[in-house]
Write a protein that binds this DNA or RNA. Structure first.
Length: 377
RNA sequence: GCGGCUAUGGUGAAGUUGGUUAACACACUGGAUUGUGGCUCCAGCACUCUAGGGUUCGAGUCCCUAUAGUCGCC
């Protein structure tokens, strides 16, 4: 069937097989591969939605769990949806809340019906099911909704990974049937299965039978090593149709992004750039900069001479060093802007390289040039 | 000039009746950070208690002197 969010492949790199595309959404078209900034509480911390849009952010994430607790889905519905609420002009995507159930709620109980857990703010008993997650996401109103899944830890036994994946599949079906606004909001299914080739294949095949607007790779970035993650991504996408967008959840390190593109991933999101920025770590074309270090105290050069962001165009490392040491909010803001723009720019370069059929070269040269450590930042 | 009080790391300071490894905080120096915990987390950081001397098995803790601050009186 047709969905409100569709995907169009614009070029396949003759050197690498990586692809560029356009994601068509009710809130505009965006080019892929892309990096999506995370704005959990309907804000990418310290950056205005207008600035994000001007920076070329494309899709921005919000989070079902957090918005459900505050301000509540009804407030967002009354506001006319999250985009109107926060004044973001571009497309948005909501994570289903599944991840938060497992990352920050305590004493959870998973049953076939859904998950019972404690509100991390006040201890209230809460219940989230696939239907309820989609219902809330319908109220939030983002262009793309995510299926309610279980993100299992790594490592996990094969038995648990299988049991959980089969349940996630049933939840995907239930969530899909619960969509109250199928003409305005699309759902992406999430491939799980842990570190098991057959389970990843099976999960992907079953999701494809259900026919989603796009597919995500879940259960990664949960503490596994790089090789394991890349393997899980490869297995997950091997059974997916080429003409649907593929979203790798929770990835934002430079080497991971570049590898994901090689594996035909079209979309990635991550809190990494904004989180490390708040703690004074910056990603630059020259590598990583921990701006608090004494060596930057009198460094009156820009953070990244090759960067076109607001921060790099106007301020020096010495100033950022000072703002960071004095714990000034403006510094946090300037550093957040830089790291987000850095990744958006990186993906612009990625798309350019793919279109020029030199992505493998680009990837190799970029990794060598940026000198990040094995973590990729 | 006389009298009182105080002298512990970069800073503010804990240090019981003298008893092994000098509390804590901030700062500083490292490190962490991947479907969001903004102002976070972890680690390191005074071989030494203003300087000399003395008492004692043992002194940051007691005594003397010096020095420096500080308050009060001339």
């Amino acid at each position: 069937m047709t969905y409100p969010v569709t995907f169009e492949i614009t070029h396949v790199c003759r050197q690498s097989g990586a692809r560029t595309g356009i994601l068509h959404t009710p809130h505009g078209d965006v080019e892929t591969p892309m990096f999506m900034p995370v704005g959990t509480q309907a804000t990418v911390k310290f950056i205005s939605p207008e600035e994000l849009y001007e920076m070329g952010a494309g899709v921005v994430l919000a989070n079902t769990y957090h918005l459900w607790l505050r301000p509540g889905e009804e407030v967002l519905a009354k506001a006319g949806g999250v985009q109107k609420f926060m004044n973001y002009k571009g497309p948005m995507l909501t994570d289903s809340g599944g991840f938060q159930v497992f990352s920050l709620a305590d004493s959870r109980r998973i049953t076939e019906e859904g998950v019972t857990f404690k509100n991390n703010l006040n201890g209230d008993r809460l219940f989230l099911s696939p239907e309820k997650s989609i219902h809330i996401q319908n109220k939030i109103g983002a262009d793309i909704m995510m299926s309610f899944d279980e993100c299992i830890p790594y490592p996990a036994t094969r038995e648990y990974a299988e049991k959980s994946m089969l349940r996630t599949l049933r939840w995907a079906e239930r969530g899909k049937a619960a969509n109250e606004r199928p003409d305005e909001q699309a759902i992406f299914g999430i491939v799980q299965g842990g570190d098991n080739e057959d389970l990843r294949h099976y999960c992907a095949e079953k999701l494809v039978e259900m026919d989603f607007a796009g597919y995500a790779v879940g259960g990664t970035s949960v503490g596994e090593d790089k090789e394991t993650m890349y393997r899980m991504v490869r297995w997950s996408q091997e059974k997916l149709p080429l003409d649907k967008p593929r979203y790798l959840m929770g990835v934002g390190a430079v080497n991971d992004l570049l590898e994901a593109v090689s594996l035909n991933i079209d979309m990635c999101d991550c809190v990494l750039p904004t989180r490390i920025a708040r703690h004074g770590t910056l990603m630059t074309s020259q590598g990583r900069i921990a701006i608090k270090k004494a060596m930057y105290k009198e460094d009156f050069t820009p953070l990244d001479p090759e960067c076109d962001c607001y921060t790099c165009r106007n301020y020096t490392k010495a100033y950022l060093n000072h703002l960071c040491r004095t714990n000034e909010g403006f510094g946090t803001r300037l550093m957040s802007i830089h790291n987000i723009r850095f990744l958006l720019h990186l993906m612009e370069e990625v798309r350019k390289a793919i279109k020029e059929d030199r992505y493998d070269d680009f990837k190799r040269e970029t990794l060598a040039r940026m000198k990040f450590d094995e973590r990729g930042f």
